[in-house]
Write a protein that binds this DNA or RNA. Sequence first.
DNA 1: ACTGCCATACTTGTATGGTAGTATGGTGCA
DNA 2: TGCACCATACTACCATACAAGTATGGCAGT
Lengths: 220, 220
Amino acid sequence: MHSAASAGSIVYNRLKQQIVSLELSPGTLLSEKEVSLTFEVSRTPVRESFVRLAQEGLVLVLPQRGTRVSLIDSELVEEARFMREQLEKAVIRLACEHFQDDKLAVLENNVSMQLESMQQQDGKRMFDLDEEFHRILFEGVRKQGTWNVIQQMNAHLNRSRILWLSTDPHWDVLCKQHQDMVHAIRNHDADLAEQLMKEHLSLSISNLAVLTKQYPDYFK
Amino acid sequence: MHSAASAGSIVYNRLKQQIVSLELSPGTLLSEKEVSLTFEVSRTPVRESFVRLAQEGLVLVLPQRGTRVSLIDSELVEEARFMREQLEKAVIRLACEHFQDDKLAVLENNVSMQLESMQQQDGKRMFDLDEEFHRILFEGVRKQGTWNVIQQMNAHLNRSRILWLSTDPHWDVLCKQHQDMVHAIRNHDADLAEQLMKEHLSLSISNLAVLTKQYPDYFK
DNA sequence: ACTGCCATACTTGTATGGTAGTATGGTGCA
DNA sequence: TGCACCATACTACCATACAAGTATGGCAGT
């Protein structure tokens, strides 16, 4: 994204990716020095990335004590779902009224790629395509800034989604819903589209309670 | 807020306040060195604050060239209004269903203080009380995380609201709407409450076009 | 065995010097 | 006059040294 070649941005992007993908477990102790050694840069850019991650709530800095990957906050996850539901319902309604023509093709292309990935059992790719599907929706109604802000909460939501992935992806249902939503947009059926979106998102993390019991030390 | 006593946080909070209040005009050139001199700290904590402000889009860092207070992005302002409308409509509906008892009293107290401030023509205080009114709403339905995320977009929205203040505050209408919303919550009238909120927020920045013409070099 | 103290090895926070890239104004040349 | 060039004075970026707070383990005294 901010493909910035600066050392600070590189460290930030890499750490963020590792945290959101759970490559770095919630609760893991970091340290400016340790990270600076693994990335072979000085503490300054590392510290810079910590500041940014802390602002997004992905790490917790305890002055003079240490820095650790933040635990998943169940309340934040639920709020993220709530927030996405409200905004995406509104966005897909807008999309039914008016949607950038070229983006509609992109959306359909995305869905067809989802079908491919599903047949290939490529969960990671499905996850990314799912994210992109929703991003395209926001772009198509010129609400990219809104999508960017959502990403902040999404970082928390996604960590729990990835945990859930390991239990039961059921991509088939999600993919079908994506298809139906595209049809609804094409037919300008706002009420149907909104209903589909609502169901789609509620499906995303219905059983948070299960995860908190299965991975107790990942959650706050 | 983050009452953190660290130099970095102090600089960050102060700069943010100055930017959002337009004490620092959009487009103003900053510089690590200059700011470090005025705050009498080294460049490190200043740089830290720049990173945080840049992430919120309040400043624009041009590598090796300089850092400037970002111009007000009309699209972001409109998106912020859109985002608030969707989320606050949903939130006030929730509030009509169930609202923390003690918070309702706080809300009414807030409104009465608004009446005071209006009589005293204290625009600044009204602005702050208005912000607090909405924050309390989110807190009352346990959506504080959502409110915090909104704040990021709000920083942009508020700059244009402050510009608008200088032209026509018409606090009387806004204050009346606040009162009506509290009544609607008390009467559990979700439909009315949502309608009131929608009108309330659309009133907040109806005439962005006027501002862009009146202050052309403040906008992107 | 237990308690209190302190040396030590961490942590993040801050200051500062050096590096590389960029804008600018002046100078020499055509 | 106008254009190319270059010295200079900025900028953000990074590395490093030092300061200050915190946890910990061992040791001495009871």
